[in-house]
Design a protein around this nucleic acid. Structure first.
Length: 499
RNA sequence: GAGCCGUUAGCUCAGUGGUAGAGCCCCUGCCUUUUAAGCAGGUUGUCGUGGGUUCGACCCCCACACGGCUCACCA
């Protein structure tokens, strides 16, 4: 018999006592005239007494002083103090509150607003009711809830106990709204494309595999939206975007969750230069709307999102940081040797482009604090982007980095169907050589392209990482309400729930 | 998948090879403007799980579970 069990039984006993008093501990509805914030706003500071209000919320603090009691209730809008007096409520109602209401219970209370001696606007309670009796205690009030595992597994407790957690997810919501507003105002159409796909594509990643019984067919959970959105550009929707979950069957880290939220957008008659302008304009706008200024703090740094952002080619960035000139070393052996000469040990990769990417990640990425567009990527790691006309081993692609986070990816989309087919074929050669993330050939997509796609700029960026940036969080789990965790065994759950 | 660290009361945390602790929470009493209310008294427990060493293990050893960080993979 554990302490929790005792406490739970104590509360069930209180629940039963309420029922014996003919009180429904879970009434189906409640009258409410004001939220906590509305009640506070309704009080005229010039007056001694405010209007009569009826409010509801969770009891978060109780101070019993004999025949008088102060308590705080909280709803989504904030906290509000209530004041109960035995001589005004009557002995029965007053004692019922003191004896049968616990911190955590939901109640409603009605009465006139007044200001206490210390100046706090408070409801002088004339009547109150139980809205929902709780059976388990809330986390402690001083230190709140710190245990990271409990915070993730029982996020509701985290939200109750930690105001900062509420703030993070409010920022998340406001960011997503602001992104939608920004794109809607510019004529983008929000669309939804399949999550279950017969062929995955649009990124380099391992998929989750599932199975549809009626169709007797394997499906993959999408790793990107790209190929379906481009089909819509073929179809004549010139500006489309989708916000949704992607799924990648890979490692979990402070920057990776197996399911994560991205936005992808495509704009016909645009190129990657247009996408760069769109990104920097959007992020500055988000900063203004959500944070009130274009400079934001992130992990101890001041990040200035004011456009224009720095642009640097991958070639120049690597040369500046590591002293290795990738254009002088266009095969793996040579590039590995050049890197080694600078004291950088590069592991063998499936191709030159991947080796360049590796070199970039090891040397340049950790230095990219202020917003930076890194442009012109190797073709081998960019099978869906258009070649640079004057350098066919590179493509018109950029990624942008803020606070060393890789935030997003964009290119001038490849709309030449025969080139696209060759790229897919090249990818299948990498796959045959053991590249597990090589892009599979999508014949259906090629047929779409053969019907004609206008010149198009495309962009994708991680919503979660954007939230990390704006909410100043170091771990992606802090910006996902229920991050992926290993399942607890049934036995351990039962032990902990004590029922 | 690998390395390191962590797991003690409902919560936040101390702790020692020799009878498990503190604060908050909770329970009882007093208290009619408190707000970390106060005062007096009281109860917390499979010390993550399972083995082993030992006269004796919360402590030492091994395995396992879960989590965190770093690395690998990736966005």
């Amino acid at each position: 018999m554990t302490d929790t069990h005792d406490r739970r039984e104590q509360r069930i006993e209180k629940l039963n006592q309420l029922r014996e008093l003919a009180v429904d501990p879970y009434p189906p509805r409640v009258e409410r005239t004001h939220t906590a914030a509305e009640a506070l706003a309704a009080f005229d500071p010039e007056q001694e007494q405010g209007p009569h209000v009826q409010v509801g919320g969770r009891v978060v603090a109780v101070r019993v002083m004999g025949r008088t009691t102060f308590a705080h209730i909280a709803d989504d809008s904030g906290r509000l103090q209530i004041y109960l007096r035995k001589n005004e409520l009557g002995e029965e109602s007053y004692d019922r509150f003191v004896k049968l209401i616990d911190i955590g219970d939901f109640i409603s209370a009605e009465g006139a607003l007044f200001r206490t001696r210390t100046g706090e606007i408070t409801v002088q309670v004339q009547g109150w009711e139980v809205l929902a009796k709780t059976l388990r205690p809330l986390p402690e009030k001083w230190h709140g809830l710190r245990d990271v595992e409990t915070r993730y597994r029982q996020r509701y407790l985290d939200l109750i106990a930690n105001e900062d957690t509420r703030r993070v997810f409010q920022i998340r919501s406001r960011l997503i709204s602001a992104i939608r507003r920004f794109l809607d105002e510019r004529g983008f159409l929000e669309v939804e494309t399949p999550v279950l796909q017969p062929i995955y594509g649009g990124a380099a990643a391992r998929p989750f595999t599932t199975y549809h019984n009626a169709l007797d067919q394997t499906f993959y959970l999408r790793i990107a939206d790209e190929l379906y959105l481009k089909r819509l550009i073929v179809g004549g929707f010139d500006r489309v975007y989708e916000i949704g979950h992607n799924f990648r069957n890979e490692g979990i880290s402070t920057q990776h969750n197996p399911e994560f939220t991205t936005i992808e957008l495509y704009q016909a008659y645009a190129d990657y230069e247009d996408m760069m302008r769109l990104v920097e304009t959007l992020y500055a706008e988000l900063a203004r709307q959500v944070m009130g200024q274009e400079t934001i703090p992130f992990q101890g740094q001041e990040i200035d999102l004011t456009p224009p952002w720095r642009r640097v080619t991958m070639h120049d960035a690597i040369l500046e940081t590591s002293g290795v000139d990738i254009e002088e070393h266009r095969d793996q052996e040579s590039l590995q040797a050049a890197a080694r000469a600078q004291g950088i040990d590069l592991p063998r990769q499936p191709n030159w482009g991947k080796l360049v990417e590796k070199l970039f990640e090891m040397t340049v990425e950790p230095s990219l604090i202020q917003p930076t567009f890194v442009i012109d990527y190797p073709i081998e790691i960019s099978p869906l982007a258009k070649k640079k006309p004057d350098a066919p081993h590179l493509v018109e692609r950029f990624e942008f980095f803020i606070g060393t986070l890789e935030c997003g990816n964009a290119f001038t989309e490849l709309n030449d169907p025969l080139d696209q087919r060759e790229r897919f074929v090249e990818q299948s050669r990498y796959a045959a050589q053991g590249d597990a993330e090589a892009h599979p050939l999508d014949e259906d997509f090629l047929i779409a392209l053969e019907h004609g796609m206008p010149p198009t700029g495309g962009l994708g960026f991680g919503i979660d990482r954007t939230v990390m940036l704006f909410a100043d969080q170091a771990s992606i789990r802090e910006v996902i309400l229920f991050p992926a965790l290993r399942q607890r065994s049934e036995a351990s759950l039962l032990t902990e729930s004590n029922v």
